[in-house]
Nucleic acid binder design. Sequence first.
DNA 1: CATAGATGGTACGGATTTGAACAACTCTGC
DNA 2: GCAGAGTTGTTCAAATCCGTACCATCTATG
Lengths: 153, 153
Amino acid sequence: MTDDGRPLEPAQLRAWMAFVSASHLIDHEVERQLKRDGGLSHPEFEVLLRLRGAEGNRMRMSDLAREVMISKSRLTYQVTQLERAGLVRRTGCESDRRSIWAELTPEGSAALDKVRPGHRRVVREALIDMLSAEELALFGDALTRVADRLRAR
Amino acid sequence: MTDDGRPLEPAQLRAWMAFVSASHLIDHEVERQLKRDGGLSHPEFEVLLRLRGAEGNRMRMSDLAREVMISKSRLTYQVTQLERAGLVRRTGCESDRRSIWAELTPEGSAALDKVRPGHRRVVREALIDMLSAEELALFGDALTRVADRLRAR
DNA sequence: CATAGATGGTACGGATTTGAACAACTCTGC
DNA sequence: GCAGAGTTGTTCAAATCCGTACCATCTATG
């Protein structure tokens, strides 16, 4: 099935290369926009976004790390930066004294609002608008499958 | 056309999130395999791969940086590391004395051979095998379009 | 030729990331 | 209760990455 010995077929290679290039380029574009419009890095933005999506605008560090898919130590660093900038606040957790809540502040929410239109624009221009409706649907299905499988390891 | 004010539609959001997740996860998987099987980082692997694909197994630093899509200074660092490991050699360029050739050594070629089967396996298992033939073709077309457009900026 | 402007590569300081080690706390089974 | 195993978040040093400034060389133009 997966025949490691031989090179990929042309269509396979083409898809792989395109995937790698496109993700690099898109990520770079996103990064640039976030930095320009709000001085945020991509991981910082992701953190704020998840917090806003969470119950009570807060989340425990571990869960946050899992969602954003970054290491614990990296999250510690990011949250420290965000806290320093006043966009997030740390709070001790009553029920489990190991845990710590990272909570979005109003300033953090405002920062999110500020960069979000530009972010949407990048997402649309870079990816969404390049795909037809059918392609988009197929795309979503296929990559969701890919991601789910990799997560289940 | 690109309506920044409103959130993405569900199908759009789904495709975007899947894309982001999948690229993170795949990249992580690739990184892990390369490190495990040959002590290489992903950028290092990319550099070696491009060199092998080039005329005379060598390329000028600038061209290499463009191909691998990393900054000049980052490439300087990577090549220094690779040189230290004996996988790449730097040579002055006769015709243009500003330029420097980065050249794949036999050891570099061997290192590539060593990790490549595992790399192919990851690429297949993580992406290729998850897609039908039609999906694969569509995928290649769409993402090539996306990448080309972003490069033309 | 002279010279201004581009191009190729490196150096360097500061920021970020990694991975392992650690301390504090919770949970489980006995 | 309690030893041992697992979880949570941080710390630390080392590795990597980024952006800018910089020097050397090339090229085009007058």
